[in-house]
Write a protein that binds this DNA or RNA. Structure first.
Ligand SMILES: NC(=O)c1ccc[n+]([C@@H]2O[C@H](COP(=O)([O-])OP(=O)(O)OC[C@H]3O[C@@H](n4cnc5c(N)ncnc54)[C@H](O)[C@@H]3O)[C@@H](O)[C@H]2O)c1
Ligand SMILES: NC(=O)c1ccc[n+]([C@@H]2O[C@H](COP(=O)([O-])OP(=O)(O)OC[C@H]3O[C@@H](n4cnc5c(N)ncnc54)[C@H](O)[C@@H]3O)[C@@H](O)[C@H]2O)c1
Lengths: 225, 225
DNA sequence: ACCAAATTGTGAAATATCGCGCAATATGGT
DNA sequence: ACCATATTGCGCGATATTTCACAATTTGGT
């Protein structure tokens, strides 16, 4: 067990490991080796052992990892053992699609409210979730114990939305607007940029990596998608 | 100009640079320096110069980069100078939200068709786009010149969808299902995993970085989101 | 014509991340 | 009890990526 900084690449992988452990648990296996886990993704087994070792010695030499025990550890490490209450800003196509995404619930996230500025949308329900006036954001956050914000408004309003979120004291934000946002200190911002992902695919089609021995054009490396 | 492998981190940044250049062009500036670009994101200017230098010497010493010229170069490098035709598999909440996402059009992507297995959805229209029977996937791909597939089906069907996509000869795929997919050689897969992103936020809330009294010293590193 | 200021392109140093290889240790068979 | 096999934890070298730092250019002022 080290006391080092944990890279986000590691925490992302922990999430993937946990998902996999859940499947393995359902399948009924009691233990799993780093090698067996590694084979499921295209990962190196040492990578997995190292990721886990940052948080403790969970494995048993000669045996592997006890599935249930490791599952519990990862659940706790990732903070999935307590409810995370979420507010989504922007009740548009994306915001409403996210509002009842089962993946939220699975990770112990509950969408407590949607927020919008459009009077036509305010007061409506999306599934179980009510659309509230963005003007009341801070109050609703306080009342409903919201700790996580999702920004799903058009790019030009995203920075303002973020600032509102920060003023309300929220420390974890997921942003879908294709724009670089500036956060204050201590606020964790995770941006998911579809445009960039798309354009990266486009690059691949435009500049396909050559297979031939005498390649002149650049090859694209392939890790970390 | 080097003849090295281009990392995906670089191509992602190119996309961000291009977006920024478009804004700058609208604002009317003729040239821009790597420093000015870097200040817009939280990037090092040398990083930008190096990213660009992989593809040519686009800058002028003492001056910077000509906005229009660089914009054209990046557009071409990223393959955004030609239409990319897209098929979305899964006409559910996410698939339909994506179907008329303006970010697609902006990057010169056109959604040619949605595909679903549900007879109730087949034949319906989502905006301009018709929902077609997934069984006819290969034929529609051929007829409509589809080059990019988006997988937006439940996780348990995603691998099968990918195999169908590969059989149809498609080389670029974006996947939203929270599952590790196996691709054949030469196929570019870009997975966007909301669950993992969410859980990474949860980790941050559960394990807040320690702060020393004077210095804000994040325990979790923050790059590459 | 010359100089100061701005700014690129890039080799080299600094960091960050990954993967090899192996001692340590648990298990099961004999 | 001993040995063969499995498999972890981890030091350390290998790769990948970022940042530094500076010579080389260009521009504009005098
Ligand atoms: N639709 C997609 O598939 C998709 C995919 C990836 C990213 N995005 C991005 O996500 C964001 C939302 O996309 P969308 O397609 O859902 O857009 P949308 O236009 O359907 O919805 C945006 C919503 O935000 C609301 N809004 C505007 N200003 C607001 C404010 N200040 N406060 C609160 N609400 C406000 C609008 O009333 C609207 O309901 C955009 O930035 C878009 O680029 C969309
Ligand atoms: N909804 C979200 O906000 C969201 C966000 C991120 C990721 N995802 C992921 O995206 C995927 C789709 O999510 P969703 O919420 O749109 O689900 P959904 O249930 O609303 O839609 C899934 C659609 O796929 C269709 N489908 C099922 N099997 C199919 C097959 N073999 N071929 C073609 N179509 C098939 C279904 O008929 C349905 O229309 C899931 O994997 C989900 O985990 C969803």
């Amino acid at each position: 067990m080290k006391s080092e900084k944990i890279s986000e690449l590691t925490t992302n992988r922990l999430s993937v490991y946990l998902r996999c452990l859940n499947e393995i648990a359902v399948a009924g296996a009691k233990t799993v080796s780093s090698k067996a886990l590694a084979d499921r993704f295209h990962l190196n087994s040492a990578q997995i052992r190292k990721d886990l070792a940052y948080f403790g010695e969970f494995g048993v030499r000669g045996v592997g990892y006890y599935v249930e025990a490791l599952r519990n550890h990862l659940t706790k490490i990732l903070g999935l053992d307590r409810e995370n209450r979420v507010g989504i800003i922007g009740a548009g196509r994306l915001g409403t699609a996210l509002a009842d995404y089962y993946g939220f619930r699975k990770a112990n996230f509950t969408v407590a409210a949607l927020f919008d500025a459009d009077p036509k949308k305010i007061g409506k329900k999306v599934g179980e979730t009510e659309v509230k006036d963005i003007k009341n954001f801070a109050a609703v956050v306080k009342q409903d114990n919201i700790e996580v914000a999702v920004i799903a408004v058009p790019a030009e309003f995203a920075q303002a939305a973020l600032e509102r979120v920060e003023k309300a004291g929220i420390k974890a934000v997921m942003n879908f607007a294709p724009v670089a946002l500036k956060t204050s200190n201590g606020v964790k911002l995770k941006s998911i940029d579809l445009t960039t992902s798309l354009e990266s695919l486009s690059y691949f089609l435009a500049q396909p990596p050559k297979q031939s021995s005498r390649n002149v054009k650049p090859k694209v490396k392939d890790r970390r998608e």
